[in-house]
């Protein structure tokens, strides 16, 4: 059987693709990024504490560490923001290339309680964003994260929020790079982040 020129090219291309895929699996350390995620650019358009509308374009050229949470959250959110604060401190001068964002999934109450004071208590570089219901829903959908208000008579104001607790890393051109699962220590985040800067 003789292969046509096109068939040869196609077989060669398939071989190269298989090798590249294998190399990707072998060399991508600890964060295998699937093909679908590689071109994923989540977006948002949300006001900061001063009411200025912020979008990913405002942070072009910087890596973003994005966390969705709420300020009435005593355990998960402070724990993650404390890790982020540690990362920012340990980055030293490289910290200017990283912008941590805290996106509220409970924006109305968080604005009332004070978003900026909350984020600043962890680290001055953390920027809190709290939109209206629609803006918040749009950002969550874009990041493919889940949040839900849960009525709980025993909680403050009679409700609490369940939410995706991971920390997301967005590249300087807006590409989704990876997520750090909840509980990832600052040292691991730092080790992943530093070679990228």
């Amino acid at each position: 059987m003789r292969l046509t020129r096109l068939q040869k090219i196609l077989w060669a291309a398939a071989g190269v693709a298989a090798l590249a895929y294998g190399a990707l699996m072998v060399f991508s350390d600890r964060a295998p990024v699937s093909v679908a995620e590689a071109a994923f650019r989540p977006t948002f358009s949300l006001p900061d504490a001063e009411g200025r509308l912020r979008t990913p374009a405002d942070f072009a050229g910087k890596h973003l560490l994005v966390f969705f949470g709420f300020t009435n959250c005593p355990d998960v959110c402070p724990t993650t923001l404390a890790e982020v604060a540690q990362v920012m401190d340990d980055l030293g001068e490289q910290a200017e290339n990283v912008q941590p964002l805290f996106i509220s999934v409970d924006p109305e109450r968080d604005r009332r309680l004070g978003l900026a004071a909350f984020t600043a208590a962890f680290h001055p570089t953390i920027l809190g964003l709290a939109g209206d219901t629609e803006q918040t829903r749009a950002a969550a959908e874009s990041f493919k994260i889940f949040f839900e208000r849960q009525d709980d008579a025993a909680a403050p104001d009679g409700y609490t929020m369940s939410h995706s607790p991971a920390l997301y890393l967005i590249g300087p051109d807006g590409d989704w790079l990876r997520q750090f699962t909840y509980g990832t220590p600052a040292t691991d985040i730092l080790a992943d982040l530093q070679p990228r800067l």
């Binding site: 959250c73 889940f146 995706s164 909840y182």
Partner: peptide, 18 residues
């Protein structure tokens, strides 16, 4: 109103049941 809670991360969602 002090109480015990448990943070539960299930299917990538954190909730905090009493």
């Amino acid at each position: 109103m002090p109480m015990l809670h448990e943070t539960v991360v299930s299917d990538g969602i954190a909730s905090m049941p009493h």
